[in-house]
Design a protein around this nucleic acid. Sequence first.
RNA 1: CGGGGCGUAGCGCAGCCUGGUUAGCGCGCCUGCCUUGGGAGCAGGAGGUCGGAGGUUCGAAUCCUCUCGCCCCGACCA
Length: 569
Amino acid sequence: MRYTNLFVPTLKESPAEAEVISHQLMLRAGFIRKLTSGIYTYLPYGLAAIRRVESIVREEMNRAGAQEILMPMVQPADLWRESGRYLKYGPELLRFTDRHERESCLGPTHEEVITDIARREIHSYRDLPVNLYQIQTKFRDEIRPRFGLMRGREFIMKDAYSFDIDDKAAEQSYRAMHDAYTRIFSRCGLDFRCVEADSGAIGGSFSHEFMVLAETGEDTIAVCTACSWAANLEKAAVLPPRQKNIAAMLPLGEVETVGKKKVATVCEFLGIPTTALAKTIVFTADGVAVALLIRADREVELVKIKNYLGVQELRVAEEKEIFDAVGVAVGYLGPVALPIRLLVDQEITGMANFTTGANRKNYHLVNVNPNRDVLLKEVGDFRRIDGDDPCPSCGGPLQLIQGIEVGHIFKLGTAYSETLKAYYQDQNGNEKPLVMGCYGIGVSRVVAAAIEQNHDKNGIIFPVPLAPYQVVVLNLATDDDELTAVAETIYADLQAAGIETLLDDRGERPGVKFKDADLLGFPYRVTVGKRFREHGMAEVVRRRDGRSEACAPAELAGFLGDRLSGGSD
RNA sequence: CGGGGCGUAGCGCAGCCUGGUUAGCGCGCCUGCCUUGGGAGCAGGAGGUCGGAGGUUCGAAUCCUCUCGCCCCGACCA
């Protein structure tokens, strides 16, 4: 491709709306332009990068035995009603009616449609296993789109769905996808981790997320530095307390704590560490008030509580709701004689003589002891794991790092096949539900994540497999016939050698070309300018580290071919 | 939806508080000259319903009301 024919509107300055580096660079490098909030046009260069990711995804999905299909984006509401998700999915699902007043929605995901296909077309164990995937634009009416392609409302996703005869076979399919994903992200040149994850709204029995490590990641993951364990923070299991506080139980007492409502002020007032205080937090779980007792310095993990309770909606209750349910003002809540359901974080079982609210305004209880003063009926793991906690798998030290979720695989089981009645007949003629799995990759997000992970102050540093062009040839003397001929020959040679090359044949000054080359992130840059006339060698510079080498034009194709296939980039 | 902020040329911004001729600056764009190894220089030029509607006023980018859009912080997710 010639630069003069390429539509890449680059920007010197980054638009004010861009917060994170990948968004800034994608705007500056002419990848995308925004149409409206969370919705972007992919310009040629950005699309080319997306296509690179897509082709890696396709190759690996096909290699893993999956077959590509393409499902409709517009879907009938009735199908979503049938699965129960028309109501459950919430406002993220964009609903509308067509000219015949038929209710419809834009597909945020395709479990319903694929299960509909499956129930119509798969009838026998002989048809199984099947794994179907598509690469398609999804629409989710996100509450808050942000960071450009990182969290758009429209985004390109690869989603795959597997169908098996039983759990065991489904786990094999799951494993195959896990391996395919590992290959995909490795081939993209990304630094990533596969972590245990919450299966969330899609439902299902277990799942893993693939996280690209980057400081701007919206998720935090816990990684063991000693073994291979890693998990999303919201999922990471906390080990039960190692040792019990075996101090003799002191008599329960009530102390006046007028106006002391916050953990910090109560502890300061009573002269105790926050680890000796237990806070009582009230939640509204599908409209019902539920309390949690947890050590005061700990963070509550809402997802764990939500999963334990099996509710749809869980949020911290508002002050009025709390007062209505408990009859006590926030700040003096406690577990003793609490009139609502009480969950207890497991850590409490190891504590003795701790302080809590007294369920009476301006009073706290001291020397509260489990079982003597509070019956611990529902004990569980409800707190968020901490960087100081031991690895739940091996006990080793943990590290908390930020990640961008680029892939998520779920073992769905029979949740959808049963509600949508997708059955097959086994060898004995028995009707059984298909056992499903689903597997997503945020294709457009992968490009954003790759840039987050691969850039410097001058611009993008594309990993070779994702680069739209592996090499840019800069002709610095477009008005010089001799040098232009050299650049043209190099360009032709590289193309003939199968290397995707961009020839910068613009009449711009050298500085402009260098800056654009850096910004656009070509892995290798070949420069033909007046220095060429001095020694007859073209300059080859590697973007990642700026390493410069000289090479005779005739040898360039082989020279670059070696480096590009060497995998050192 | 709650909280915070911003809408002035393609992009980045100033002007607004304290209303007053023709609304400015940098970058980009067009023409010419010049220059050609890190976003050059000179000269000339195009480009604006100051987000929109209403109001106050002799007079509104500026003050008031409403409205739309966008960005950032919280609950969702690839």
